[in-house]
Design a protein around this nucleic acid. Structure first.
Lengths: 337, 337
DNA sequence: TACACTCGAGCAATCGTTTACGTGGCGCGG
DNA sequence: CCGCGCCACGTAAACGATTGCTCGAGTGTA
């Protein structure tokens, strides 16, 4: 029963069953053209020897691997891991496996991953990245690609599933303004992804719409990679120490917002009494934090689902809409009460 | 420059360069046996036409795919996503891609994934699961497997990289006892993984070691899948409502612990004054929670690194140690202050 | 009896690589 | 001048599957 070494091949099955390899293939794929008796014999051999088809060979022949690639900036971030989880599940349900690539916002790494994925001949790619140098990938064998959440500026006619970041930025900022904030800081990383930039634009629009000036001192940019919340915590601590005055914070995402909450607490600044804070993503961090974080809710499950549908559609050669914008909404909690 | 449709094949490169396909192969792999002039000509054609080798074909021929499979229970949990991130990076550094499979603690799903991975002829599998029905996978083509963190009871001679869960359970419980707790609840999911069970055994050993009885009413088992913290929160709320008396909680992981913290707060029970809480994993949730959570620190990065090394070693046909136990330590924070 | 048709099955090409082996030309030593 | 060896390269057989084509035997019909 147990295989001694190598997995058994189709030819061995054929030999053991005393039929041709073509017949085995037909039986396996239920194509007909074989007798009931032959079917039983073949299936018995398959069962007894634990034959499992070699997808590498199949993929070579059929020019499709039933594998898709997924490029993610940081799977450690709740938003992205939720996205990845849902996408993986959606693809699995359709018979696809998912190769995961964590590019850590590193363009070079991302490009290397892209080459690898093409080389593996994935059937499609879900890309969450604003960095990919794009002249390249069209050359790189025109694999179907769908951007989800993040996308680069020059993304030609590549479809994307994004959330309404501009509106999210506006919602968050206006909410702070309504609560009486007049000096609202914007905390962000250095991102080339348009989706992230749009949050900043929404912020500025909201300020302008209410006659507030966008003080450059209130734009707090995190250097380096935004990992966990530690960097945000330290950066904000430095800003506080430098004496910059503010009464509201809009953070590009919940991880940064949580870092801000901790820095504020460290400095003895009360939230929401002294400073109100709004995050982005409405991830698990927002519910865990104290005070619970007001955050712009997005729908990673929905985005994953749509992204998956779009990509599959593309793979099947259908037309798809270029831009699919998922709405956002504000989840109000204690941090702006 | 841009490819019209299909990626170009090696034969086309050969034709364009006016050499045989064998020569192209030799140039690409730097095997020698070609002139400098030929090399230049071939490389020029490759460059100009954006040739990228087909790994499916290569894999078929070489009987290795440079892909490894990873079965994870819940990539949404910070501990596992950190593990996955590190593993993916470690493998990528060695030229391997990672297929990610989220089995959601579902045995059936896990087994299906296993078959798929075998079918894809992955070179090895990192498995974080206590569920796999194991008689199967030895049959399933004896691919190298390494268990990380979780492993099933009957895991024959499959190597594993685990943390010292028993000691972790004891550390956590003894810490609570030292802080004066006498009625300590243990919150867990229903897990067949030995690693999880060991935490409970450590808990019981610690109790027994201090002459405390293990009250069955204090063993709080979560039904269903433990996703996020909501279920723990609700379950503990019910326990509180039912009037069970306790002054300490040891939770199987941080997600459950955070749910407990929230339920306690909902019920107006103070932490640590009325009830002290210890989690497991020392994940990001522990630092974010208020009060900050005392937790058994584990080292997912280290575990991922070791797991990766072990698997690669196995793939290369070397012997490896069967059990690699990574120590744990207690990170004391406010929830037990 | 002859013919057409169907059914079950095999043959062989093909996908894109790698690699063992064969081969022609050239240089060089004897 | 002959022969040997090496260099640079080509030929072809794999790897494990799919699939169009062929083919023989059996059946039904006229």
């Amino acid at each position: 029963m147990a295989q001694s070494n190598k997995p058994i091949s189709m030819r061995e099955v054929a030999e053991l069953a005393g039929v041709s390899i073509a017949t085995v293939s037909r039986v396996i794929n239920g194509l007909g053209g074989f007798s009931e008796e032959t079917r039983k014999r073949v299936e018995k051999v398959i069962e007894e020897n634990g034959y499992i088809a070699n997808q590498a060979a199949k993929g070579l022949r059929e020019a499709r691997t039933r594998t898709i690639g997924m490029i993610v900036p940081d799977i450690t971030n709740d938003f992205f891991s939720t996205l990845a989880l849902q996408a993986e599940r959606a693809f699995a349900d359709e018979g696809y496996s998912v190769l995961i690539c964590n590019d850590a916002n590193d363009a070079e790494r991302g490009e290397h991953y892209l080459r690898t994925l093409i080389s593996k001949r994935v059937d499609g790619i879900i890309c969450i990245s604003g960095r990919t140098t794009f002249d390249e990938d069209e050359v790189l064998g025109n694999v179907p690609i769908v951007y989800v959440d993040r996308f680069p500026e020059r993304s030609h006619d590549i479809p994307r599933v994004i959330s309404d970041d501009l509106r999210g930025g506006r919602l968050a900022t206006e909410h702070l303004i309504e609560r009486g904030c007049t000096r609202i800081a914007f905390m962000t990383g250095t991102h080339s992804a348009l989706s992230v930039q749009n949050r900043g634009i929404g912020y500025e629009e909201a300020l302008a719409g209410h006659g507030l000036a966008a003080d450059p001192a209130l734009r707090i940019e995190l250097k380096g990679r935004v990992r966990r919340f530690q960097e945000a915590r330290e950066t904000l601590a430095a800003v506080i120490a430098s004496g910059v005055d503010f009464d509201g914070i809009f953070a590009m995402n919940d991880v940064i917002a949580v870092g801000a909450l901790l820095a504020l607490r460290d400095a003895g600044i009360r939230v929401p009494e002294d400073v109100r804070v709004v995050g982005f993503d409405d991830s698990i961090y927002a519910s865990i934090a104290t005070p619970a974080l007001t955050s712009v809710r997005r729908f990673p499950e929905e985005m994953a689902k749509r992204g998956c549908e779009t990509l599959l559609s593309l793979i099947e050669g259908n037309d798809v809409e270029l831009e699919d914008v998922i709405p956002v909404e504000l989840a109000v909690r204690e941090s702006t009460a």
